[in-house]
């Protein structure tokens, strides 16, 4: 067991966990943040994607592939932290309006991947959208409504 300090959604935490525990399990089991999902457990589907800042800015990562110890002193944002007050983040709003969420299980990861994409490319091209989401598998939508959600979110954020 090892003791780590990390800040999740602006809340500091000190936890004693097995150092090789997956960050995904730490979030879900130790912090009860179940918005981060497991669907493949091998970094293929993006359902467990979160934003992780280990000192060089927040980056999209798959939390199923990160040992807890490597998140020591890191700052994390999960889907629960995107809109800390009752309002929806503009990306959440656009996913809701444009049909970007169907069954919803890939949605937290999709929304965080979109957040990362729009940070890098505020006005993404179709190719940038397709690439930016290609690590997040969705079986319901065929991605078209998700692309539309992102275009709407980009427009909304630009205003």
């Amino acid at each position: 067991m090892t003791t780590i300090h990390l800040t999740v959604n602006n809340q500091p935490h000190t936890l004693t966990v097995p150092p090789m525990k997956r960050l995904l399990d730490l979030l879900r089991e130790d912090l009860s943040l179940t918005g981060t999902k497991e669907a493949c457990g091998e970094g293929e589907c993006g359902a467990c994607a979160i934003l992780l800042d280990t000192g060089s800015g927040p980056e999209l990562v798959n939390s199923c592939l990160i040992p807890a110890l490597q998140a020591d002193n890191a700052t994390l944002t999960t889907i629960e932290g995107l809109a800390p007050d009752a309002a929806l983040h503009p990306i959440q709003q656009s996913f809701l309006q444009a049909g970007g969420a169907q069954c919803g299980i890939c949605t937290p990861g999709m929304i965080l991947a979109t957040h990362h994409l729009l940070t890098q490319h505020p006005n993404p091209t179709e190719a940038q959208i397709r690439e930016g989401l290609s690590g997040n598998l969705c079986r319901c939508t065929g991605y078209m409504r998700i692309f539309e959600s992102i275009r709407q979110a980009a427009t909304e954020t630009a205003r």
Binding site: G43, G46, I66, A113, L117, G132, G135
Partner: peptide, 12 residues
């Protein structure tokens, strides 16, 4: 580098 895994994995 752009073909290696997904963006999330490229970040790590």
């Amino acid at each position: 580098a752009s073909w290696t895994g997904s963006i999330a994995n490229q970040n790590r």
